[in-house]
Amino acid sequence: MFLPGSFSHSVLPMKLYAIRHTSVDVKPGICYGQSDVDVAESFHRERTAVKVELSGLHFDKIVSSPLQRCRKLAEYLFPAQNILFEERIKELDFGDWELKSWDDIYNSEKGKNWMDNYQSLPTLNGEAYPQMQDRIAAWLQELNESGTEAVAVITHAGVIRIIKHLAEGQPMSGLFAEFKPPYGSVTIFDFKKNNEK
């Protein structure tokens, strides 16, 4: 069983650059989870800023969520490199709540109950965060054991929060309240440093 912060010391040190996709073409207040929404008109400006931030860095492996908001950024950032599209690093599956407004979700009995207990309950005909954590943990463990030293991961805010929880052992509740990676941001996880603590 994978536990937060429990990476093996027998593998090579890994540095993971978690890149959140850029802004999306969705009205504010809409739940879009695993819906394959497109990037916003600001994509060209935002993607350039990400490329500048990553300039001079070398990555042994590039991994991306297959959803187009991540895929488009990955293909722009790394046009000459092999990109691995990984289903397990998609955002949470919100089931029947996909593309519904958060206000409507909260105003329903099941929606309010989920929001009050989101760390354990599944979404309506969708996924629960413990399930999402399990799929990300399995992928992350495989990645760490592969001996990769530097990896770029183009993914979603929820995934980045869970990586932070697993890598650093921070409580999920605090991460959702306090850790909000912006669109087009880069969050660096140094697993060598974590293992030396």
Rank of each mutant, 00 (worst) to 15 (best):
residue 1 M to N: 06
residue 1 M to R: 08
residue 4 P to E: 07
residue 5 G to S: 06
residue 6 S to Q: 02
residue 7 F to T: 05
residue 8 S to K: 00
residue 9 H to Q: 02
residue 13 P to E: 03
residue 15 K to I: 04
residue 17 Y to F: 15
residue 24 V to C: 13
residue 28 P to T: 12
residue 28 P to L: 12
residue 29 G to E: 10
residue 31 C to H: 12
residue 34 Q to K: 15
residue 35 S to F: 04
residue 36 D to V: 01
residue 37 V to G: 03
residue 47 R to H: 08
residue 50 V to G: 06
residue 50 V to D: 07
residue 54 L to T: 05
residue 56 G to S: 02
residue 58 H to M: 10
residue 58 H to V: 05
residue 60 D to I: 07
residue 60 D to G: 12
residue 65 S to D: 09
residue 67 L to I: 09
residue 68 Q to H: 10
residue 70 C to Q: 10
residue 71 R to T: 13
residue 74 A to M: 07
residue 76 Y to I: 06
residue 82 N to K: 10
residue 83 I to W: 01
residue 87 E to A: 12
residue 88 R to M: 04
residue 89 I to S: 02
residue 96 D to V: 09
residue 98 E to C: 01
residue 101 S to F: 10
residue 108 S to F: 03
residue 111 G to W: 06
residue 113 N to G: 07
residue 121 L to V: 06
residue 124 L to S: 12
residue 125 N to K: 14
residue 126 G to N: 10
residue 129 Y to H: 08
residue 131 Q to L: 08
residue 134 D to Y: 04
residue 134 D to Q: 13
residue 134 D to F: 07
residue 138 A to H: 14
residue 143 L to Y: 13
residue 144 N to H: 14
residue 151 V to I: 15
residue 157 A to I: 11
residue 160 I to P: 14
residue 160 I to H: 14
residue 161 R to F: 02
residue 163 I to N: 03
residue 164 K to S: 14
residue 166 L to I: 14
residue 166 L to D: 09
residue 169 G to C: 05
residue 172 M to S: 09
residue 175 L to S: 01
residue 176 F to N: 04
residue 177 A to C: 01
residue 177 A to R: 06
residue 179 F to I: 03
residue 180 K to E: 03
residue 182 P to N: 02
residue 185 S to E: 01
residue 185 S to V: 00
residue 185 S to D: 01
residue 189 F to G: 01
residue 190 D to V: 01
residue 190 D to C: 04
residue 192 K to P: 00
